[in-house]
Design a protein around this nucleic acid. Sequence first.
DNA 1: CAAGGTGATGGGACTTGGTGCCATCACCAT
DNA 2: ATGGTGATGGCACCAAGTCCCATCACCTTG
Lengths: 195, 195
Amino acid sequence: MPYTLPMARWQPNASERLALAALELFAERGYENTTVIDIAQRAGLTKSTFFRHFQDKREVLFGHDAMNRLLVEAIAAAPATATPLEAVAHAMDAVGREAFTPARREFSALRHAVIAASPELREREALKGLALTAAMTDALKRRGVPDLASCVAAELGALAMKIAYERWSDPAGGDDFSEVARRALGEVRAASTLC
Amino acid sequence: MPYTLPMARWQPNASERLALAALELFAERGYENTTVIDIAQRAGLTKSTFFRHFQDKREVLFGHDAMNRLLVEAIAAAPATATPLEAVAHAMDAVGREAFTPARREFSALRHAVIAASPELREREALKGLALTAAMTDALKRRGVPDLASCVAAELGALAMKIAYERWSDPAGGDDFSEVARRALGEVRAASTLC
DNA sequence: CAAGGTGATGGGACTTGGTGCCATCACCAT
DNA sequence: ATGGTGATGGCACCAAGTCCCATCACCTTG
């Protein structure tokens, strides 16, 4: 062979490899029985490199935070005439289109199960949930929605999203996240009038 | 002196002493600049004893979890004719009567400021918030409120409580937590109809 | 009164998460 | 060629958290 392809000095996608290795190991032996060194070894890397890519061990399952940007942009892009909850529904559509696609349903379900099995991971998820509703609240305020209404709409939207996520993760549930989420949002809205 | 009083083998209230020492040190130098050994030393104890009283370093500021019981019992004790949010208001009264009393306002404000200053403590607080709304949801379900309505009412109640707590902690705010909370709950209820 | 049980504490060894610093070495521009 | 760049490896170190055993005033029992 006249040519040898230039060998990349490092294998690509270090972060993704670490995240995948972590998910696999957590699913196999549980979060607490997996050390950071284990994760790094399975990804062909070291502890140092792990902490260069993730702030801490929990963050490896929550890394990118793309969801917040997605929601904020979709809420901002909703038609000016939309009510707060309609803007939230618009954001759910975007999530179904770009994040919770049918192809990622199985992956999401596994990730969800792993998180549910570990107190530490549930705690981190609770924090991410707060950040998510804070981001939605902010996005609604920027639409001119009054502060309190923004808080309430974001809270109801986050609740609907949690419910929708659980239904969508279930193999028996619907395939299209947007549909499931719009229905959940409608139910939440209806329930809120009964309080 | 003919008598020497029997010296108790251990100073009493070890948990409380640890919690107080921790709050003081966190306020003085910050959570991250305080080690568990520092806390134990100020309380006249050791690291071993600290971890015998608290699951981890964060828990020392969240210890007893009396709030959940208080809310659950008050919701259960609300008149059978009360709507879900009225039952929540009933619970707010109980909190103002037994937990957030005027005498503890300054203490609560300090604790709140310490938590707000540390990411790790905010994360634990997020988890406690989830547990709190879960407890309220459960208590409402036991009143016969439908599942979804229970979720929504608990979520709105938790939001109102958060808002009320912030206003009540502020020296410029009202003195009686119950009053502040009932007003916040009314505002949240009104805002929810605008979504 | 003696003997033994109890329970909160002290203390030290050990694992793991997480930080900091420096060395390495293919790639790249000059 | 030469030197800079940037992702990585490796090591020392600190603090959180676990385990296990020793201690010793108090209490019960014979």
